[in-house]
């Protein structure tokens, strides 16, 4: 079971916080801040889990998720989606698009860590 997380997020402070948390929990963290080439980055990085922000410059997190799900190797990739918009419609859309877990900002650090651990454990089972 790999411990490789790809964090796609454009807010520097949030990136720093997430990186701090995940690294201390033993994860390797790659970050990317632009939506446009996020799918290519994911293909290159081959992560065990993707943390995906909803609002990104270039391409929305929702579109990136859909594209990932269309690629066979990512069909079962755990994707944890974070959003600051907080609309229930977004959650429905994300679930339809195949999100593994959907969380609203601001989140509790413990929750995020638990989610990451659980999702990767489930996927590797």
């Amino acid at each position: 079971m790999g411990r490789h997380v790809l964090l796609i997020e454009d807010e520097p402070n949030i990136i720093e916080a997430m990186r701090f948390l995940l690294v201390r929990d033993g994860w390797t963290v790659d970050t990317h801040s632009d939506g446009t080439d996020a799918v290519d980055v994911a293909r290159a990085a081959q992560p065990d889990l993707v943390v995906l922000d909803m609002m990104l410059p270039g391409k929305s997190g929702m579109d990136i998720l859909r594209e990932l799900r269309e690629i066979a190797e990512f069909a079962n990739l755990p994707v944890l989606m974070l959003t600051a918009r907080g609309q229930s419609r977004d959650r429905e859309m994300a679930e339809k698009a195949g999100v593994s877990r959907f969380m609203t900002k601001p989140f509790s650090n413990a929750e995020v860590l638990t989610a990451v651990r659980d999702l990767v454990a489930q996927a590797s089972r």
């Binding site: 807010e11 402070n13 949030i14 948390l21 609002m55 600051a84 918009r85 900002k105 601001p106 509790s108």
Partner: peptide, 14 residues
């Protein structure tokens, strides 16, 4: 909402 939650996320996380 987005503009409010984003700084709050950083504040809460840190």
């Amino acid at each position: 909402s987005h503009e409010l939650r984003t700084p709050m996320t950083s504040i809460r996380a840190f």
